[in-house]
């Protein structure tokens, strides 16, 4: 098996390297890739879309159709992890661990019975470690600032590196930080599963819906200049605003999918004990 793998990898590598014989050199300003399409993008972005960040303009406007499908890919991945892993009905009842807060004594309750809720006992995970006050407090402090930074990244995608995907991942990371520093049940209490799943679909619907709105207003799909009549501005500014709307949709979808995938994978679908 190793020899077959080695032969396949070597022959493919030789084929690919020999095919680079005719490539333009690295960082050559006169290469076909740099002279065919990209001058149009670089020179005309400001006057056609009034967005200084060329990558955002190309991503969300010129090739916005691709980005819509990219958002659909990440949604599909979240849906796939959900459908593969989520278990709604447990077959074998499992043991739960409870800890008496004052004395530190651990109680194992067998076969799915539960203790009545009281302040003296807290539910702990099977992989429980002693609580570290510093980590818990600092993470709780940081999470709102992380989220604020994420909103900044989404909103300033026009002028600085950033945009919907980057901001959405940071937003998702803030909730996952809550799950890692405390436990999964805390973060699921903050961001419920049903809200998460519906919001994920809503995020992609914002993107596709904006495009469909442009279609209904008479122009082609995802032609943001059709929004000029709705937003009461000129077509070029309408493109800039259209890009912002779809980036918000992307951010929401990516945030919810990150949280959804993390919840499903770390608890293997049971949603009671995380990492």
């Amino acid at each position: 098996m190793k020899i077959i793998g080695l032969i396949i990898a070597l022959s493919t590598g030789v084929l690919l390297i020999s095919a680079t014989g005719d490539f333009p050199g690295w960082a050559d300003p006169a290469s076909p890739a740099s002279t065919h399409l990209s001058p149009h993008f670089i020179e005309k972005t400001m006057e056609e879309t009034s967005v200084p960040n060329i990558v955002t303009a190309v991503l969300a406007d010129y090739r916005g159709y691709d980005t819509m499908y990219e958002t659909a890919v990440i949604f599909t991945a979240g849906l796939a992890c959900f459908i593969l892993l989520r278990i709604f009905v447990r077959e074998e009842p499992e043991d739960r661990l409870y800890r008496h807060v004052l004395t530190g004594v651990t109680v194992r309750v067998k076969e799915g019975a539960k203790l009545p809720p009281s302040d003296d006992f807290e539910r702990i995970d099977a992989t429980w470690t002693p609580p570290d006050l510093i980590i818990k407090t600092i993470c709780r402090f940081l999470i709102p600032f992380i989220q604020l930074f994420a909103l900044y990244v989404i909103a300033h995608g026009h002028h600085s590196p950033g945009g919907g995907f980057q901001g959405g991942v940071i937003l998702g990371a803030s909730i996952i930080l809550l799950a890692i520093s405390q436990d999964l049940r805390t973060s699921v209490r903050r961001m419920r599963e049903k809200l998460d799943a519906v919001l994920c679909a809503v995020g992609v619907i914002i993107y596709a819906g904006t495009g469909a709105l442009c279609l209904l207003l008479g122009l082609n799909f995802l032609d943001y200049s059709a929004l000029a009549s709705v937003l009461h501005c000129d077509p070029v500014t309408a493109r800039s605003h259209g890009i912002l709307i779809v980036e918000i949709g992307v951010g929401i979808a990516v945030m919810c999918t990150m949280i959804w995938i993390y919840n499903n994978v770390s608890s293997t679908g049971k949603y009671d004990e995380g990492l």
């Binding site: 149009h40 406007d61 010129y62 159709y65 122009l219 082609n220 799909f221 995802l222 032609d223």
Partner: peptide, 13 residues
């Protein structure tokens, strides 16, 4: 030919 986003190919899709 259907132009997405109103951009002519090869600029757009």
């Amino acid at each position: 030919v259907y132009r997405f986003g109103g951009w002519d190919p090869p600029m757009g899709i």
